[in-house]
Each structure stands twice: as structure tokens, then as C-alpha cells.
């Protein structure tokens, strides 16, 4: 019999609560004038923020610049954070608003595939997590598939793309996403379902178990 999911959920909740308490402590320090305390929050969230922005914009240069802008905005406005929600919810909201504004302004559709990193380490990292392919095939095929996926993601509307990125890539819950986007959980589920159907349609030639 499988382990009861309640245990895992409880553990997750405890960890989340610990993390939130830790954030509150550091935020209090920043508010009391200890600027260096913000470094802790930067190190904790910069990669996650970058990942969201990168998957939304599909451009590494823009993603780096936007992530920095988001963190500066957060620093500027940390005195307005009242602690009614989790810090990361507040931070992600800034991230999403900044990214939406940027995308709307630039209307960029270009994307950056994995080769653009000029680093074998990144590609190897992904490959190490996809060991169900034969070694010879998987590098080429996976690279191609990732490129197709990036293209397909960029074809989604902003709202649909956001939900897919936050739920499937960042691993957030429907409730958290609903809080961030100021909409109902039902809307989040509906958007996610529609977005995944669109992605499956766009990638039907590459994915298993999919018949249009």
C-alpha cells in the first residue's frame, strides 16, 4: 500500500511554514535597516524567479535583466509588504506583473534554445534526468523536442503560458497560482487544461500516447 498522502502534505506544509517564518525574519531585518539581510532573500529566490521569467520570455538576456529588475523592485517596495501572504507569493506577483508588462511592450516571439547557453553542462543536466532513451538518440531528439516545446509555449496566450509555467515547471499548487493571478482555482484548472490540450496538439508528432 502506498504511503498516505496526508503525511507528505503535512511534511510539505511544515517545510513551507518554516520557510515562510525564515522569510519573515529576514524581511524584518531588512525593514529595520539591515540591507545585507536582503542578500539571503536574493539567494533563495533568484533562480526560481529567473526560471519563471525565462520560461515566459524564452530569452536568457531578457530573463536575467528582468529578474534583476524584479529583485530591485522588491527591495524598493519591501516596506509595503505587510506579511498577509507568503513572501514568495508577493515576489512572484511582482515578477509576473513585470514580465507581463515587458512582453506586452516588446511583443517578442523569439526564443532561445538550449544551444544558446554555450555550455555542455546545462544540456548534460537535462539529459541526466531523461535516462529512458538510448544514449545515441536521446541527445539529438531531446534537444529537438525542447526546441519544439519552447516554440509551442510561445504560441500560447500569456494567461495560458503563465499557468503552465507555474504549475508544470515551477510545481506550484492551483491555490497558490490563483492567489498570484487574482482569479479562482476553477479558472486556473480550466486554463491549464486548455493550455495542455493546445500544447499536445502542437507537439503531437513527438509525444507518446497522444492521438489528436
Amino acid at each position: 500500500m502506498d504511503a498516505p498522502p496526508e503525511v507528505n502534505l503535512d511534511e510539505e506544509n511544515v517545510l513551507a511554514e518554516q520557510s515562510a517564518n525564515e522569510d519573515r525574519l529576514w524581511i524584518r531585518r531588512v525593514k529595520s535597516g539591515n540591507i545585507r539581510a536582503f542578500d539571503f532573500l536574493i539567494r533563495k529566490y533568484q533562480r526560481r524567479l529567473y526560471s519563471v521569467v525565462y520560461n515566459m520570455t524564452a530569452n536568457k538576456v531578457d530573463a536575467a535583466d528582468l529578474t534583476q529588475e524584479i529583485l530591485v523592485k522588491a527591495f524598493r517596495g519591501i516596506h509595503t509588504f505587510k506579511g498577509e501572504s507568503h513572501f514568495y507569493t508577493w515576489l512572484y506577483r511582482i515578477a509576473l506583473n513585470t514580465t507581463f508588462s515587458f512582453i506586452k511592450k516588446s511583443r517578442k516571439t523569439s526564443h532561445c534554445s538550449l544551444e544558446n547557453w554555450d555550455d555542455a553542462e546545462v544540456h548534460a543536466n537535462i539529459l541526466s534526468h531523461s535516462n529512458d532513451l538510448e544514449v545515441g538518440d536521446r541527445a539529438t531528439l531531446l534537444k529537438e523536442l525542447q526546441e519544439k516545446l519552447n516554440e509551442a509555449l510561445q504560441k500560447l496566450s500569456l494567461n495560458h503560458r503563465t499557468v503552465v509555467v507555474l504549475f508544470e515547471i515551477e510545481g506550484m499548487s492551483h491555490t497558490e497560482i490563483a492567489q498570484m493571478l487574482h482569479c479562482s482555482e476553477g479558472t486556473v484548472r480550466s486554463r491549464l487544461h486548455y493550455a495542455k490540450e493546445q500544447l499536445k496538439q502542437l507537439l503531437k508528432d513527438y509525444l507518446k500516447d497522444y492521438e489528436a
Binding site: Y50, Y54, L114, I126, L142, Q146, L149, E168, I169
Partner: peptide, 10 residues
């Protein structure tokens, strides 16, 4: 495939 994008980090 989407989960694999988590490892797409610099």
C-alpha cells in the same frame, strides 16, 4: 517534458 524544463538553468 515540461518537468525537464526545470533543469534548463544557466
Amino acid at each position: 517534458l515540461l518537468h525537464l524544463k526545470r533543469y534548463e538553468m544557466p
